[in-house]
């Protein structure tokens, strides 16, 4: 019998703690599939964030370390510099990357560190139960913006890809979404390209991935996907910001 679908070798058989409808599970499976397809599992080193994906080392079936909140790009910098033939990536949430870890990501990007970043934007602090994130949209209700984010009081949401696009050290930069099947297929392509560019030693490859957090958005999974399409993707357009060429 021919297997037409199976669990990627790069995923363990552990049950994840992610809520139903959560974007993290989908994205981690895509990363695992790409690593399998490129045959680099035994060379892969992942850096897990502090956030809902903190337990990634239980889910990925290759070497994974934790990092302090926001510091994954500093950790990845050293690993990749010392082990340039390995495939190194950070997996970071919006609080991790765009709030507490802003300095680390900007400077790793500016240095053109040759690792890949998967930036999971769910517009909220998932793990600490739904506070405002730097990417929380104007008007979005969170547990620390109960009447909705008001830019006059809470500031404006950060568009990370747009911010990074001015840095020469980032060579591949794309925003993808997981709000529907075509989006998920495109996300997988983006992840693959990011790793392939890393293998070409091109500098930082960065993919922002819009993801849902039904639990903290207080929406059911299908309404969450709808909200992503209608609201998130309007402020965070799906777009290729930088792509040095055809690599797939």
């Amino acid at each position: 019998m021919k297997a037409i679908y199976q669990r990627p070798e790069s995923l363990t058989t552990d049950t994840s703690i992610y809520c139903p409808g959560c974007g993290h599970g989908v994205i981690q499976k895509l990363i695992a599939e790409v690593i399998d397809e490129l045959g680099v599992r035994e060379r892969a080193i992942g850096i897990a964030p502090v956030g809902c994906a903190v337990l990634s080392y239980n889910y990925f079936n290759f070497d994974v370390t934790e990092a302090a909140h926001g510091r994954a790009p500093a950790v990845a910098t050293a690993i990749k510099r010392l082990l340039p033939s390995r495939i190194v990536f950070t997996y970071q949430g919006d609080g991790d990357l765009a709030a507490i870890g802003t300095a680390e990501i900007i400077h790793a990007a500016a240095r053109g560190e040759n690792f890949s970043v998967f930036f999971i934007n769910n517009a909220v602090y998932g793990m600490t139960k739904g506070q405002m994130a730097p990417t929380t949209l104007t008007g979005q209700k969170t547990t620390t913006t109960v009447s909705g984010r008001n830019p006059q009081v809470h500031g404006f949401p950060i568009r990370v890809c747009e911010l990074l696009s001015s840095l020469d050290g980032v060579t591949y930069l794309e925003r993808a979404t997981t709000s529907d099947i075509p989006g998920i297929i495109a996300t997988k392509k983006a992840i693959k390209k990011a790793i392939l560019w890393q293998m070409q030693q091109k500098g930082m490859s960065f993919v922002e991935i819009l993801a849902s957090c039904p639990t903290n958005w207080k929406k059911n999974p299908s309404d969450s996907l709808k909200w992503m399409k209608e609201t998130m993707e309007r402020y965070y357009p799906v777009k290729v910001f930088k792509d040095p060429g055809n690599i797939l």
Partner: peptide
């Protein structure tokens, strides 16, 4: 220095 020490973590 925050970044330095976390780079050490990676190394």
């Amino acid at each position: 220095e925050t970044s330095s020490i976390n780079m050490l973590f990676g190394a």
